[in-house]
């Protein structure tokens, strides 16, 4: 989409705000709508938009495919690891009460960490699936549609 000037300019302006909004949804999920899953999808969608406008090759320079092999399992490990941490601290699996000095503080900490894990995995999977599809086709010409 090299010659779509409006799309290029508008998406370049929007992408930082989409990423920032994803972080807001991620870390504000306790208070407003949203959470790890939605944040991950929005974060991934920003990269998908970037790849659509500037091409998959350029997007893979910004987000190397090798990162995905780390990000995708890392999120699940953060989630599972939180459970193990609460086991080691004397609680039951995924019982956040024991993670901090007070049970309420522990719940807050546990929820934020766990949601972060969900967000990391979802971001990675969205981008991985998109790269997997997009990497198989050559650049699409406008008259192909």
């Amino acid at each position: 989409m090299r010659h779509h000037l409006i799309l290029r300019v508008v998406s370049k302006l929007l992408i930082p705000f989409i990423l920032l909004y994803a972080l807001y949804v991620q870390f504000h999920g306790d208070y407003g709508p949203g959470g790890g899953f939605q944040a991950g999808v929005i974060f991934g969608a920003a990269f998908v938009l970037y790849a659509l406008i500037y091409g998959v090759e350029t997007a893979q320079k910004a987000f190397p495919a090798s990162w995905l092999a780390i990000l995708v399992p890392l999120g699940l490990l953060i989630f599972g690891g939180t459970g193990v941490a609460s086991l080691l601290l004397g609680g039951t699996y995924l019982d956040y009460d024991v993670l901090a000095a007070t049970p309420t503080g522990g719940q807050h900490l546990g929820i934020i960490v766990v949601e972060f894990g969900v967000g990391v995995t979802v971001t990675g999977v969205i981008i991985a699936i998109f790269f997997a599809y997009a990497g198989r086709t050559d650049d699409i010409q406008d008259d192909d549609w």
Binding site: G29, D30, P33, G35, Q107, H108, E115
Partner: peptide, 9 residues
């Protein structure tokens, strides 16, 4: 107990 305003979360 949890004191999180968004019950869904």
């Amino acid at each position: 107990d949890i004191q999180v305003p968004n019950i869904v979360t």
